[in-house]
């Protein structure tokens, strides 16, 4: 096993982890503030990709083709954020505190979303074409030629992580969000419009799923059924890393991404099991997740 091979597999794992982080951080954010397990997160990922592509496809064929991709990103994010707000306001907000019921509601919604996507867009796979700037290979020391888009994925994930950290730790909204995690009632008593904060957080978390959808469908072809995969990834990353912690989500994503890639090297048809061994081990040793706070 050459050094180049080791570096390549590791970098593959990290670029995969970047995508996982973008998607799972949205899941973790929603769970962290509202204790809502959004079982529709995988479906939102898919909605982002499909809406993005519906906008992308006609523009890509026109004279504006170089703008198609950024516009698709914005379209995916906005559409899913709006959907997230609707979910929170219409269905989830008024049953706050009933965690299981909320999870069941989001399961119901995810079935409807996935089926409506199938009805409106059909089931054929598609893929975004990245803009020229992010297309093609680039020389990476120690590895050789590597797709530049996958490096961009890592950069984007870092930007998302830093952005979320700044948002939660340095802004007024972040203060309200963190206060809401600790005591919603006290926060409301302080005059904060908690439902508005909740809707904002839900929009943000959903938007990250939408962003992940477009990014993921640029890196790999998109087909129906990925909703299950990304819901699973979000669950596992958040269980391993710890609920509601950005650092934990990043750590979980890196662990799972590396485990998936290295697992395929060492035992190809059993690599999925490695992910679950990690999950079971974390649950046994630190049930709250590697960087999670102990549940009160």
């Amino acid at each position: 096993m050459s050094l180049q091979f080791i570096l390549t597999v590791t970098l593959n794992g990290l670029t995969l982890a970047a995508l996982y982080f973008i998607v799972a951080s949205g899941f973790s954010l929603i769970f962290g503030l509202m204790r809502t397990v959004n079982m529709a997160h995988g479906a939102l990922y898919m909605v982002g990709a499909y809406i993005g592509f519906a906008v992308f496809d006609p523009i890509y064929g026109s004279a504006w083709s170089s703008y198609a991709w950024p516009i698709a990103i914005v379209a995916g994010i906005v559409a899913v954020a709006v959907l997230g707000v609707v979910m929170q306001v219409v269905f989830l907000g008024w049953m706050q505190g009933q965690e299981l019921r909320q999870a069941l509601v989001t399961i119901g919604l995810s079935i409807i979303f996935a089926d409506q996507l199938l009805a409106n867009f059909g089931g054929s796979p598609f893929q975004f074409f990245a803009p020229d700037l992010l297309f093609g290979p680039v020389q990476v020391p120690g590895i050789g030629r590597y797709p530049v888009f996958r490096l961009f994925q890592v950069g984007l994930a870092i930007a998302v992580g830093v952005g979320l950290w700044l948002l939660l730790n340095k802004t007024r909204l972040g203060i309200m969000v963190r206060a809401g995690v600790d005591d919603r009632q006290m926060l409301a008593a302080c005059g904060v419009n908690v439902p508005l904060v909740a809707a904002t957080v839900f929009a943000l978390g959903a938007a990250l799923a939408g962003l992940g959808g477009v990014i993921g469908a640029t890196a790999q072809p998109m087909a129906l059924g990925v909703d299950a995969r990304f819901l699973l990834i979000s669950l596992v990353v958040v269980i391993v890393g710890g609920m509601g912690s950005i650092g934990g989500t990043a750590l979980g994503a890196i662990l799972i991404g590396l485990a998936e890639q290295w697992g395929q090297v060492f035992f190809p048809t059993y690599s999925v099991i490695l992910t679950f061994v990690i999950m079971a081990a974390v649950l046994a040793i630190r049930p709250q997740g590697l960087m999670g706070r102990k549940v009160a």
């Binding site: 204790r35 397990v37 079982m39 965690e99 299981l100 999870a103 819901l231 699973l232 669950l235 596992v236 958040v238 269980i239 679950f276 999950m279 649950l283 049930p287």
Partner: peptide, 12 residues
């Protein structure tokens, strides 16, 4: 684990 965590783990 219980409640919502159990749901997530068993689903995973």
């Amino acid at each position: 684990t219980r409640e919502i965590y159990l749901l997530m783990i068993t689903l995973a």
